[in-house]
């Protein structure tokens, strides 16, 4: 059983790798595996249906005081900026791959949010936003009564 499990996972990895290489050959740099263009910052969304969602984004080198997070109804907007690199006469750039400038991203949520209880933390360049689902919107368990 152990052997089979390992075998199948490496097979998937192999397929994944193959697909990545195919994409590298055919695709432009603007699209990812599924062919969609992503906004900045890229996000990962974690869900626990009864309690809410956690949105995580990689935003290295940002002053958390300049991050602006707004929750309006069922959508959240994250905006901020990353300072432009130093420029000076005696400074010679060899590589410049890191982006800078302003960004804004709005994300549509699948449920209304308890806006007072939204929490965000920024650590090691990673932004985490905890979005608790509005109490009124949570699914209710209906007790079935029987008239016996």
């Amino acid at each position: 059983m152990e052997f089979r499990k390992r075998y199948s996972s490496s097979l998937w990895e192999e397929m994944d790798k193959l697909q990545r290489e195919m994409n590298r050959m055919f695709d432009s740099a603007y699209t990812n595996r599924s062919g969609t263009v992503f906004d900045f910052p890229a996000i990962n969304v974690w869900t626990k249906p009864e309690s809410g969602q956690v949105i995580i984004a990689e935003l290295p080198g940002i002053n958390p005081d300049e991050l602006d997070i707004k929750v309006i109804g069922e959508s959240i907007t994250i905006s901020g900026s990353r300072n432009s690199p130093e420029e000076s006469e005696d400074l010679k750039y060899h590589r410049q791959e890191r982006g800078y400038g302003r960004f804004t991203r709005s994300i549509q949520l699948p449920f209304p949010v308890e806006s007072e209880r939204v929490e965000a933390n920024y650590e090691k360049g990673i932004l985490k936003i905890w979005l608790p689902r509005a109490e009124a919107d949570k699914p209710r368990k209906i007790v079935v009564k029987s008239n016996s």
């Binding site: 290295p60 690199p85 010679k92 890191r98 360049g125």
Partner: peptide
């Protein structure tokens, strides 16, 4: 990681984005 590399008369500077590492 994405990097910026620049140099002055005295130093070479390398800046890399490594979110999640400390």
């Amino acid at each position: 990681p994405r990097v910026d590399i620049y140099e002055t008369k005295e130093n070479i500077y390398l800046v890399a984005d490594i979110p999640g590492a400390d």
